[in-house]
Each structure stands twice: as C-alpha cells, then as structure tokens.
Nucleic acid binder design. Structure first.
Lengths: 148, 148
DNA sequence: CTACAACAATTGTATATACAAATGTAATTC
DNA sequence: GAATTACATTTGTATATACAATTGTTGTAG
C-alpha cells in the first residue's frame, strides 16, 4: 500500500503526516473488509461489537453504560443501537429490578447463534487482512500502538 | 494504551484480533484529536481533506471525481461536501467550459487563509499525537502498514 | 419527609453518510 | 444524424451518528 499512489499526490509528504494518513488508509481498509463480512448478516460493526460484549458477559446482563464503556468505538447513542438489535431478535432488554433507572440487556439464543456464524467469517477476514504479517510483526505493531 | 484495559475485558484476546482492535482504538483517538482541532473552524475532517487537495492543485481546478479519487476516506457524496464548503465561501464551483458534464472546483483566497490557520494547528496536533515515537519508529510503522 | 442533586436511559433534532435513481451532457455506433 | 451507450454530477431517501434536552428514578442533605 503506497500512500502517495493511493491519494494520488506527486509531492513528498512529511513523515509525521504521512504516517497518520497511512494509518487512516489502512483503518478504512479494515473497516471496509469487516463491513462487507457483516453486511449479509444485516449487522453493523457497532452492533457486532455489542453482541460480542454481551456474550462475554456469560449470562450476566449488561446495562447501557457498561456497553458504552466497553465498546471499541464509543458512540453517543447506545439506546438506539440496542433498539435495532432487539428488532432483529438478537438481544433482550428489561428494566433492572433493583434499580429501575437501569436496564438489563442480554443476548438471546438467536443472537448467539448468529454471532457464532459471524465470528467464523470475521476470523477468516482477520487472517486474510493480516496474511502478510508475521506474529513477530504483529507484536511489533502492538508495541508501537502502545506509544500512542 | 492497553487494549484490555480500554475495552475493559479480563480475558486474553488472540493476537490477530487484538492487533486489529488496537488499530481501531488508536485510529479513533487520532480522529478525535483532529476533529477537536477542526471544530473551532467549523470544518469537518473530510472538508479539510478537500481543501488540502484543492490547494495542492496550485490553481488548476479539480472536478468531483478527481477529488473523490484523492480523498483519504472516499465518500459517496462529494457533491454535498463541496456544497458545504461553498456556503462557507472556502471553495468555488463552476461548470467546466470544455465539458459541461464536469465541474471545476477551486479554493478561494478565504479558503486558503483558513486552511493555513488550520494547518498550523493540525501540525501541532500531529506532533503531539506522535510525540512518543522516534523517526525510526515512524518509518517502522509505515513499513508495517505497507504489508496491509 | 421534602427539596434538591445525581444518575441512567431515552427522545428530539440536526447533520452526516451510504446507496440508488435520476438528470444532463458527450461520445459512439449504425 | 438519430439512437444508444457512457460519463459526471446531482438528487432522493433511508439510515447512522453527534449532541443536547428531557424523563423518570434514586440518593441525600437539612
């Protein structure tokens, strides 16, 4: 992936700007791949993230602020995100009995089933995106990311 | 930036998934910083990108497909993006005399002036985001990104 | 126990983005 | 040169997201 070729510029870009542009270009590619995997399941990247968080709860219900806190990309409207998952039958929401301000959100068996299918595809996509990188290079990347 | 701490999970994430999540987390941070720099100027990241492309044209007008092709994040509606810049007086659009299907978009002196101010702030922000990385590490990052 | 502050989620509204269909123009084919 | 195809942009519409204001509930100070 050559930055100058992709954004079609002839002039040399300063190393710092170049790195950040490069960063965003790769990120766009990652999101594009993930989105295309998720599309047939009619689930957005954010919705997928919520489903995975809920499964990670192992039965324990999560409330909205917990979800928001754990999401990779925090967004300002988790209520409506959950609304969509409810319509699809993938999650279930009840008001918390001990504190009626809160809600308890859980993943349904149907949601778990779909999530399992998605996971397989996503896992393949991940391997494909990273096919040119060795485990050592992945470690290296993670270490560099830690410096941000 | 510790991934597990940020997304608040206790379990170990496989290296591949972890890298991609880490990638997105850092990207979100970058976008967040950029957006907050741009906010006072009432210019979005995409609009900023268009302005920079137009300046890079050095007077030569650009048409919509050229803009779209050169944008870091391609979006499906460059028309409306340009509309907003016109309202702000930062760019100018006329239909191309030699081919009336096309349009000719140029940056205005006002646009150039604002862009210069933004550039200074963005440059500072870039340095700040990357303050913990040496030039060598930046090169290393770019090389790793090339493998995607 | 009443008033007030803090909390958690929801709703309203404006803007942004994705995708498809439509418009207007130019080039090509017969 | 009329019909068709391809091109470049615009418009329509549905959905997504950001941000602020609102609602309903709980905790707390006096």
């Amino acid at each position: 992936m050559n930055v100058e070729k992709i954004i079609k510029t002839e002039k040399e870009i300063p190393l710092e700007s170049r790195t950040l542009i490069h960063f965003m270009l790769v990120n766009n590619k990652i999101i594009e791949v993930f989105s295309s995997v998720l599309k047939p399941f009619d689930v957005s990247l954010q919705q997928f993230n919520v489903l995975r968080i809920l499964r990670g709860q192992k039965g324990r219900p999560a409330n909205l602020s917990t979800l928001n806190e754990r999401m990779v990309t925090k967004m300002s409207n988790t209520t409506r995100l959950v609304d969509k998952l409810i319509v699809k039958g993938f999650v279930c929401r009840i008001t918390c009995p001990s504190n009626r301000r809160k809600v308890e959100i859980t993943i349904t068996p149907e949601g778990k089933k779909v999530l399992k299918q998605i996971d397989e595809q996503i896992s393949k996509a991940e391997k494909n995106i990273l096919k040119n990188l060795t485990p050592k290079e992945l470690e290296q990347l993670n270490n560099l990311f830690n410096k941000f």
